[in-house]
Design a binder for these strands. Sequence first.
DNA 1: TATTGTTATACTCTATAACTATA
DNA 2: TATAGTTATAGAGTATAACAATA
Lengths: 167, 167
Amino acid sequence: MTSLAPARTAGTAERTAPDLSYLLDHTSHVLRTKMAAALAEVGMTARMHCVLVKALEEERTQIQIAELGDMDKTTMVVTVDALEKAGLAERRPSAGDRRARVIAVTDAGAEMAERTQAIVDRVHAEAIGSLPEEMRPVLLAALELLTTGHLATPEESPAGARRARQA
Amino acid sequence: MTSLAPARTAGTAERTAPDLSYLLDHTSHVLRTKMAAALAEVGMTARMHCVLVKALEEERTQIQIAELGDMDKTTMVVTVDALEKAGLAERRPSAGDRRARVIAVTDAGAEMAERTQAIVDRVHAEAIGSLPEEMRPVLLAALELLTTGHLATPEESPAGARRARQA
DNA sequence: TATTGTTATACTCTATAACTATA
DNA sequence: TATAGTTATAGAGTATAACAATA
């Protein structure tokens, strides 16, 4: 099996209530693979793209970008490493706080960000464009309502709670 | 950070095109945590529920259920182990093929499947019910169109392609 | 004392490999 | 030879822990 095996939640999807879990998992997963493939053609990942864009918007430190992108600071380290290695961004000492590093996007990085933003927009447009025109704004509005409303914040995982190990 | 860090794909979500990747990732992720939490209250996971339901529909072997649920056969082993340990299902030799094991759902398992199906339906209904009534069928129809159309099959991962190791 | 960024490490999840027994 | 199921293990991804420099 190639996919991440999302395990259709409701077994009797056809007969009973439509399986929202399956629909969201599947579309989200497939779109992610399409996005990853499209970005991989220019040697980029979604996370690298995200960091470039946030860093271009204004002067930001690693932690600030990590929070915006909802990633761990250790994940940021790896992502910034990749960007530096590709010559797309650089770590610079922050003027105000000598502990912090500002992410400076190089000229090549700014060019890349434009390319990848175009790729992202294209992949999204292709997906949405495959739907009848009347449906498009409703789909987006509904997802936005869920995102800011009933499905705004994840449930704290009680089972998978990762306890701190005894040091 | 507690979440799986989906990395908003488009950085300028507010100003430019709506970020379909973010919307799908976020809703899918949060719904999954809600579902996991709800099922955890009766000691179940989405995968266990899925296997129970498939096994109840008709006599099926592990591999058959694995394919229906889009999981690896090794993942099936773990899931069936959990179901057996909980007394909800049993492995029985297949009548026709002595290599295969049929998953037999116990009475307790059948009861549990009803409970978990009610939980699944409730969680879905709560999410969809949070939307204005006109939007609900459109959202579901749009997701179904994507699932069977443009976003039907995952892109083969070129970067993350897991090559077979040399034996 | 708290925080930024770093390194090292451990955990979770899932897939691959190799094996047994059947076919 | 191929397949069902099992076990063991490897890999990717991501979090926690501990540390150095600075606040």
